[in-house]
């Protein structure tokens, strides 16, 4: 099986975009980027609140029957929201921990082979359909939230691992050389130099994991994994448009909110 070179990174072009704006005059550019960021921070929650407001308005102006009501109880929505959070956060935490650990192992001395294998596998993983993995996992392990989390982990581990490996390999070789030169032992170099330097890489891994898992977690409903996607599948099953709309909007708002939260945390943690 061939996996073609120059595989694609989810965030590759986005990074290039932030670089390309460096062509602008330095002062104006950085000022503009900052205002854009601040705008993003404030604008996103406002937009999400507006969308939720519109959803509530829509649900209040639409005649709802008892089936609709059952799905739209606040307690139902709340428990689905928590299931969704569980699915996303647990899988992302496990994926990040695994990826960092594996990443460190793979980047120890002379493991470029491991690196290219990971890259190839990650490309392959990207080609795998998440819904297929989800259903396959259910058939093998049985339905339920636990299986959904396994499926999420399997799906997102490779891209995150690849990001981590690339990041760790990309650390300035001169610094590592210097660390060796002043007589640090490998373990000291790892703990004292490499890991602190790799914090941004690891953070990027967390971010990738969460974004991938948020998108896929909505599919957990197919295998009884719960989450906000349940409203959509219920709505389709009982043929109730208000439930479908409410479910879709909530899933979308959840994803955008998580993305926003990840962005905020990343910004707060990044040294500027």
């Amino acid at each position: 099986m061939t996996v073609f070179p120059s595989s694609i990174d989810v965030f590759q072009a986005t990074d290039a975009a932030s670089e390309s704006s460096d062509f602008e005059p330095i002062k104006a550019g950085s000022r503009r980027r900052r205002t854009r960021r601040i705008g993003h921070f404030v604008f996103r929650p406002l937009m999400l609140i507006l969308i939720l407001g519109l959803l509530i308005l829509y649900l209040h102006t639409t005649p709802l029957d008892s089936i609709d009501h059952r799905s739209l109880y606040w307690s139902t929505i709340r428990s689905e929201l928590f299931q969704q959070l569980d699915l996303t956060l647990i899988s992302s935490a496990v994926v990040t921990a695994l990826a960092v650990l594996l990443g460190i192992l793979l980047t120890r001395r002379k493991a470029p082979v491991a690196n290219s294998i990971v890259t190839a596998l990650a490309t392959l993983g990207q080609a795998a359909p998440p819904v297929g993995l989800m259903i396959l996992a259910a058939l093998v392990l049985g339905v339920g939230a636990r299986t959904a989390i396994y499926a999420l982990i399997i799906y997102s581990i490779l891209p995150v691992l690849r990001n981590t490996v690339t990041g760790l390999n990309g650390l300035d070789k001169a610094i590592l050389e210097a660390a060796r030169g002043i007589g640090m032992r490998p373990i000291q170099i790892l703990v004292g130099v490499e890991l602190p330097l790799a914090v941004p890489v690891i953070m990027a891994g967390v971010r990738t994991a969460i974004i991938l898992n948020v998108g896929t977690a909505a599919l957990a409903t197919f295998i009884n994994g719960g989450g906000l996607g349940t409203m959509i599948t219920t709505g389709i099953a009982v043929d109730r448009t208000p439930i479908i709309v409410a479910g879709s909007v909530l899933v979308a708002v959840f994803a955008l909110a998580m993305d926003w939260a990840v962005m905020i945390v990343g910004e707060l943690l990044s040294p500027s």
């Binding site: 909505a218 599919l219 409903t221 996607g229 959509i232 709505g235 879709s248 979308a252 994803a255 993305d259």
Partner: peptide, 11 residues
């Protein structure tokens, strides 16, 4: 790109 596909299908 961060929107889950199921949400878009639902909409």
């Amino acid at each position: 790109l961060t929107l889950p596909s199921l949400a878009l299908f639902g909409l």
